[in-house]
Design a protein around this nucleic acid. Structure first.
Lengths: 234, 234
DNA sequence: TACCGAGCCTAACGATCGTTAGCCAGTCCC
DNA sequence: GGGACTGGCTAACGATCGTTAGGCTCGGTA
């Protein structure tokens, strides 16, 4: 492979780690992709503008052609993460028919799918909110609140229809939410992993000792069963 | 209250956020306590040595009378967090009798208790491992591995005794581990919280919209029931 | 009494941080 | 053809970073 081809591959090494960036300018997209990799690994304050510029093959000053500040980039990452995640779960619920159990199962499956497919985005958008300014943090908090509303409605309807048995949904939802979220930290795909594809998963995922790697499908099914048990599904 | 009393209270504002620091020199202990508060809030790279020194009422250079480097302080925090957590869970299992279900229940309860009682330590010791050097990271990884061994043994014994039904324990353990770990991020006590006590919990815990705050006891019981369901307890 | 180390201090080192000013090569539209 | 816009560049700003040198003041100990 030529040096130039190597350079190009290095610059695009993070392609595919972010959903919903197809319409963006290529320079901005590359910065976002480099950022989600670096921030998930080292945290917001552990990543400098010069790091991102270097990963993208440009100078630090060029960063500011795309973002007004470093914090604004983090905000865009968080916005992207929460919006795409919410859309993913919402569409799954809406396409699941009228049975609350199937709606819950679809929601859990979509939740896991997103966290296992975009783990670096999940980690960045959930662990680095402290670095947002007050206004941006409030916007993200509103998004989080909205995302919870629909799932709460599914559970409450399931209760009144008699297919769930959890009079107080908050604790079971916290448990299910927690176990689904953590998938982003440990998941690594079982199939077709070359070095480039593995870079889309957190480095720590390699150190969680497990007997094997699992397919996304298997994790989705298994965790959905756990969730239905927790919600006391009939 | 006098100014001097105010100063003293500010310096000791983080007292009680760390277990197992009774024998340490007061200056070192204060630095560790200030560090766990700041690191859980802003991340390792978001906290400077001068920040910690300022919170402790000393100069930055005095930091190095207690720690060889900033990374070494993080290592001591991670060591403390993993050791105390492991001891807590281990003792609970050993004191639970011979029934695997009761051993599992005790382990989950102890796990939750630790995460809800020392949430800032839990967050720091689990989210900031990336900032450790290779040698220290390997030591912590060994500790994590050892901690998993005992619980795995409990589950496997429960399987062979016929009281659990989970032929492959890793996925259920990942689910239960995830939901218990996340308690550290959202838990806030329901009773007797003045401003000083609340500072022992992550700031974000206030933003997770919940209908009420729960007692530790209630979370422990509820989550233990979830865990037993997940492991297919007879 | 003399010493010694612990624990604090002031001052400063070089490196790196986020950000800005000012400039330049293309590309598009009128 | 000319002007505006886009997206890159070099160079530099002041602030802050982790860390060190060197000195002071104690309490304990030989």
């Amino acid at each position: 492979m030529t040096d130039k081809a190597n350079d190009r591959k290095a610059l695009e090494g993070a392609a595919g780690v972010l959903p919903g960036v197809e319409g963006l300018a290529i320079g901005k997209r590359r910065l976002l992709e480099a950022a989600v990799v670096a921030v998930a690994e080292r945290g917001y304050h552990g990543v400098s503008v010069r790091d991102l510029a270097s990963d993208t093959g440009v100078q630090a000053a060029s960063f500011y052609a795309h973002f007004g500040s470093k914090e604004e980039l983090l905000y865009e990452l968080c916005l992207l993460g929460h919006r795409e995640h919410h859309r993913c779960v919402r569409d799954a619920i809406l396409g699941a028919g009228a049975d609350a159990r199937e709606q819950l199962r679809a929601a859990i499956r979509a939740n896991i799918w997103f966290h296992a497919t975009y783990p670096l985005l999940t980690i960045s958008a959930n662990s680095e909110l402290h670095a947002l300014n007050a206004e941006h943090l409030a916007t993200i908090a509103d998004l989080r609140h909205d995302a919870g509303t629909l799932l709460t409605a599914v559970v409450e309807r399931g209760n009144s229809e008699g297919v769930f048995d959890c009079p107080e949904p908050w604790l079971p939802m916290s448990a299910v939410g927690g176990m689904c979220l953590r998938v982003a930290w440990w998941f690594r795909p079982a199939v077709a992993v070359d070095e480039g594809t593995l870079s889309a998963y957190p480095r720590q995922a390699a150190t969680w000792l497990r007997p094997e790697d699992y397919t996304i499908e298997r994790v989705m099914d298994t965790y959905a069963d756990y969730a239905l048990k927790i919600f006391g599904a009939a």
